[in-house]
C-alpha cells in the first residue's frame, strides 16, 4: 500500500516529532496518528521506528498487540458493540446478530460502501443501562434491534442542502 498522500505523510511526521521525546512515547504517537488518519498506515512504521530508535518489528509488535489500533482505513462510521457480560444479560447477543445481519458484515469488517466498520468492545462502562453501542466518541445505551436500526438510519441519512 502506498496510498499515503503527501499531506498524510507530513501529518505523521509532525505527530512523531511532537511526541517522540515523551517518556514511553509509542502509544501516544500511535493514538495521535490513528486519531488523525483513522488508522496507522504501514508507511508510518519505519518513521516511528527511526524516531524512537527501535526496530520496525518492535513497532509492528506493539500495533498488533492492542485491539484498538488498525492498519487499514475504517468506514465512515465506526460502530462498536459491547460484548461483555452486563450487556449480555440485557440481550447483547441478539443485538450482535441483528447488527451483523443488518450491516451485512462481521466484526473487524467494513461494509462494501465503506459506510460502516463493526468492532466488538468489552465494556463501555454503561453496564446498568445496556446493551451499549459506541459510535465514534458517543455511547448509546439500551440499544435493541429497533434502536440500532434507527441509529444506522440517522447515520446514513444525508441532510439535503436547500438552495
Amino acid at each position: 500500500m502506498s496510498g499515503l498522500t503527501e499531506a498524510d505523510r507530513t501529518a505523521v511526521s509532525t505527530i512523531v516529532d511532537q511526541l517522540k521525546s515523551k517518556p514511553g512515547a509509542l502509544l501516544p504517537i500511535l493514538h495521535g496518528i490513528q486519531d488523525r488518519l483513522g488508522y496507522i498506515p504501514s508507511e508510518a512504521v519505519p518513521l516511528i521506528a527511526e524516531a524512537l530508535q527501535q526496530t520496525a518489528a518492535e513497532i509492528h509488535g506493539v500495533i498488533s498487540f492492542y485491539h484498538q489500533f488498525r492498519t487499514s482505513p475504517p468506514g465512515r462510521h465506526q460502530l462498536q458493540i459491547c460484548r461483555a457480560e452486563a450487556c449480555q444479560a440485557r440481550g447483547a447477543r441478539e443485538l450482535e446478530a441483528h447488527a451483523k445481519a443488518k450491516l451485512g458484515i462481521g466484526y473487524h469488517q467494513t461494509s462494501p460502501d465503506r459506510e460502516f466498520s463493526l468492532e466488538p468492545v468489552y465494556c463501555l462502562g454503561n453496564c446498568a443501562c445496556g446493551p451499549s453501542v459506541r459510535v465514534g466518541d458517543e455511547i448509546v445505551g439500551r440499544v435493541d434491534a429497533t434502536r440500532f436500526d434507527q441509529l444506522v438510519d440517522e447515520l446514513t441519512t444525508v441532510p439535503l442542502e436547500v438552495k
Partner: peptide
C-alpha cells in the same frame, strides 16, 4: 483501566 464488565465506579 476499569475493564471489568459491570463496573463503572472509577468512571
Amino acid at each position: 483501566d476499569e475493564g471489568d464488565s459491570g463496573t463503572f465506579a472509577d468512571r
